[in-house]
Amino acid sequence: MFDTLIELFSYPFMQRALIVGILVSLSAALLGVSLVLKRYSLIGDGLSHVGFAAMCIALALNLAPMIVSIPLVVVAAFLLLRLNDSSHIKGDAAIALISSTALALGVIVASLRQGMNVDVSSYMFGSLLAVDTNDMYMSVALSLLVLALFVVFYHRIFAVTFDEQFAKATGTNVNLYNMLIALLTAITIVIGMRMMGTLLISSLIIFPALTAMRVLRSFKGVVLCAAALSMFCMIAGLVCSSLMSIPAGASVVMVNAIMFGLFSLISMIRKA
């Protein structure tokens, strides 16, 4: 068993997947705590579909996927926040609109260009092989940026998450921090999308936060626990994925779901 693991991680593609996976899962978990508590859980879902459309467009135009998708997803993130604040369309409806439109656009672009079916499927469900060296460097740089900004603005993010009104009254620029969270989420999603797949990336944001909240009762505790859980699930998921030859994204989500069940059980036992 141990030997198999060592052999597995001696492959360069596996190392790349592990590095990107850990960094993405860490960023996603940190942002996820704030997003889930602000009732923005679905934002990741909407953004990943926009990312899918962007990838299809990039592929059709022969451009580097990240260069097209980062700006597009960031714009979509700001747009979703705006729609969330306006009273005309409710937040969840706005996300559903944007995500299905983007998905449709992506599929149309993909089908207009021949021979893209294989790539589209790997975008949908993710692939470990999709992470090349360039992707890895970019992912490492962006994840470190996300982590650094989260740590630096941790207290403000808490204040804005807990009570926007109060934060605003004490002079915190609430819009700035909301935009920061949206920006970081958009970047995290684009980085993680190739590996985890469009359909599964948003679970990286939601699961760790919800799982940690089953058991822990302070913000710091939830953040730290979500981060640790998320990294653990990523590593365990990747190992299962290679050992059992199942798609990486699905495997990571399954491990996350199992941990959620486990933590729910602990919380139930504690209450009983």
Binding site: L37, H155, R156, F158, A159, F162, D163, F166, A167, T170, G171, T172, M213, L216, R217, S218, F219, K220, G221, V222
Partner: peptide, 15 residues
Amino acid sequence: FPASVMEVVLSGCLK
């Protein structure tokens, strides 16, 4: 909301 009392009160010190 999962936050300790101390975390909530301290957030008042942000200016």
